[in-house]
Design a protein around this nucleic acid. Structure first.
Length: 609
DNA sequence: CCCCCCCC
């Protein structure tokens, strides 16, 4: 590997020239600590002739220092950087800053092990530097503005790339968001809105008003932008999630890290003078960046974490009205249930306007960024607050993949509900039927899962087969028109055929009580050890063979995995339990457990035999 | 200039 540096590039860049990927050596780095600020690294770089003291790493490169990937003496090319002059407010002096946005390591510093050449401190007005020998195209720039290298310019903007006059139609002087600072005037950023809050009002001793805030990003960094009372409505109407805008003349102020996870030292306040122009050609600006966690992994993640998830909205509750306990504020809440291919389901709580606007009727893909993981009675769920973003059917590969997965799934597919303590997984906690009843499982407008151990008391042998819609994923009972045609209400279609499906409604019992449950095709087949064909399909109700099949499971001990939910049928609402699994278990083991359960109750003496 | 993020 060549250890040759681009001699003279520091002087050239500082004087405003654009040098393509200059090769420099890192001599030193230092963490800049300031209160409330994201950590940043100042670096000393050398081109072999000069070293400078005014280079900074963009925060996204911090990791290279932290991980030890970028030790001192490393030879690297600066693939993207921005050189700015920042007027110092107090002294009127001009301060130079070189922000390194991306770099490529050429030789690791541990291999180099020493300073190359004998570089001297670069000073303002030092013109002794030779013309760089690496190819470069010197470019005239305005002295007061930033120069950039390797930084994507707006495709729709053939206007002057750097400097130039302010012009509404062709925004100029585009700087990367990472370079935003309070000392620089006349900048424009080109940024995508990746999160947008609802309008919120506040009232405190210092006053009252309303505001909304957005997270916006370009390829260099993210930053938060807020609009207050007088311009709140205007910008809230104007700026749409996921669109790209040129933004200039916003106020820059220090970001309070207490309230945002965005790694930028500053944030923007949009005011009366702020100019926002919609950008049509926006391919260079990244989309919302998600870092999805599979739903089943959430049960092992600490409550209060901020997470991104994606799933199919399988269930949507009605809106609940409630009152916040501390603030007495009226709240509207809607719970939706997401499922994903990790075979888990989780409840997501939407609030107020998000709850009102949500339409889950088409079982859409829902992507959530910045959801807050909460824990309640041992289960995990996600709350969508003002700092969260929700996208419905986003046009991203993961969403299309999920859609395909879900649409080819059997409607008997089991998900473990991680929002419910007794959900967890296939080995979820076994409770008694009485406990299930005391916990009112299934009565809260969502599916509750639990397992219990018991025996089968009785299996009614009538209506064990029904005529189902022939559509592969629709198992709805069809209406027999008695003329060779069958109507499916769900598909709203008339067919000339149907398929037979098993449905059993056994009564199960344990030592605390009994319960009727439904068993559909797959579970029923497993349970009986027989198919609909074996039993004898008949369009006219079931005709017999009770002993052969239905006696088999009687009084054997099973572990039942059950979904309980409220169901309305013929205007009657009742608890409906569906057996999702009926697995025979060893009677002796079950008995021992039963004895332990009874002993736990206390006061009951059980004689062991 | 906000900075709460709720409930069972």
């Amino acid at each position: 590997m060549s250890r040759k540096l681009t001699e003279g590039c520091i002087a050239a860049i500082t004087s405003g020239q654009t040098i393509e990927k200059p090769v420099v050596q890192l001599l030193n780095h230092k963490k800049i600590s300031s209160n409330n600020a994201q950590e940043r690294y100042r670096v000393i770089i050398s081109d072999g002739i000069h070293y400078n003291t005014f280079a900074m790493l963009a925060t996204q490169l911090n990791e290279k220092i932290v991980s030890g990937e970028l030790p001192d003496f490393t030879i690297m090319s600066l693939d993207q950087y921005i050189s700015s002059e920042l007027p110092n407010g107090r002294t009127n002096a001009v301060r130079k800053v070189l922000v390194i946005l991306s770099l490529t390591i050429i030789v690791n510093g541990r291999e180099v092990g020493e300073k190359i050449g004998d570089p001297k401190l670069f000073e303002e007005g030092d013109n002794s530097a030779p013309i760089p020998r690496e190819p470069s195209v010197p470019q005239p720039v305005s002295n007061r503005n930033a120069t950039m290298n390797g930084y994507a310019q707006p495709a729709a903007n053939p206007a002057p790339r750097f400097g130039g006059q302010a012009n509404n139609d062709a925004p100029t002087n585009i700087i990367p968001i990472v370079a935003i600072n309070p000392y620089q005037n006349r900048w424009t950023i080109k940024a995508r809105v990746v999160s947008k809050s609802a309008i919120r009002t506040w009232s405190n001793p210092r006053g009252e008003g309303k505001l909304f805030s957005m997270d916006i990003l370009d390829e260099s960094a993210s930053i938060r932008a807020t609009a207050f009372t007088d311009v709140c409505d205007k910008f809230h109407d104007m700026m749409e999630l996921n669109k790209v805008y040129y933004i200039s003349r916003a106020q820059v102020k220090p970001a309070n890290k207490k309230f945002t996870s965005i790694p930028h030292d500053f944030e923007l306040t949009l005011g009366r003078d702020t100019e926002v122009i919609t950008c049509v050609s926006d391919d260079s600006i990244p989309q919302i960046q998600y870092n999805f966690t599979p739903l089943n992994a959430l049960k092992d993640i600490a409550a209060d974490s901020t997470i991104d998830v994606i799933g199919i909205c399988q269930q949507t509750s009605d809106i609940q009205n409630l009152v916040a306990r501390t603030t007495r504020r009226d709240l509207k809440k809607r719970d939706i249930t997401l499922v994903d291919s990790s075979d888990a389901s989780i409840v997501i709580s939407l609030w107020d306007s998000a709850a009102e606007q949500f339409d889950g009727s088409s079982m859409p893909v829902v992507a959530i960024k910045g959801g807050r993981l909460t824990e309640y009675q041992g289960g995990k769920s996600i709350s969508i607050g003002n700092n969260s973003t929700m996208q419905i059917n986003p046009d991203i590969p993961k969403a299309h993949q999920l859609r395909g997965w879900y649409d080819s799934l059997s409607d008997q597919h089991q998900f473990s509900n991680i929002s419910n303590k007794s959900g967890g997984d296939g080995n979820n906690k076994v409770i008694t039927l009485k406990e299930a009843s005391l916990q009112q499982l299934g009565t809260h407008d969502k599916t509750d899962y639990f397992s219990c151990e018991g025996t089968v008391m009785y299996v009614p042998s009538d209506r064990v087969i029904y005529l189902a819609c022939p559509t592969p994923e629709c198992n709805k009972k069809v209406v027999d028109n008695n003329n060779g045609s069958y109507r499916c209400e769900k598909c709203n279609q008339i067919f000339n055929n149907f398929k037979y499906r098993l449905i059993l409604r056994p009564q199960i019992g344990d030592w605390t009580g009994t319960q009727w449950v439904n068993m559909f095709q797959d579970v029923a087949e497993q349970f009986l050890g027989a198919t609909a064909d074996d039993i004898g399909n008949s369009k006219d109700v079931y005709q017999g063979r009770y002993d052969e099949f239905f006696r088999k499971p009687l009084f054997k001990t099973f572990v039942f995995r059950i979904a309980a939910r409220m169901d309305t049928y013929n205007n009657e609402t009742r608890l409906k339990m569906t057996a999702l699994q009926a697995k025979p278990i060893d009677f002796k083991e079950a008995s021992k457990k039963l004895i332990r359960d009874i002993e736990k109750l206390g006061g009951v003496s059980v004689k062991r035999t």
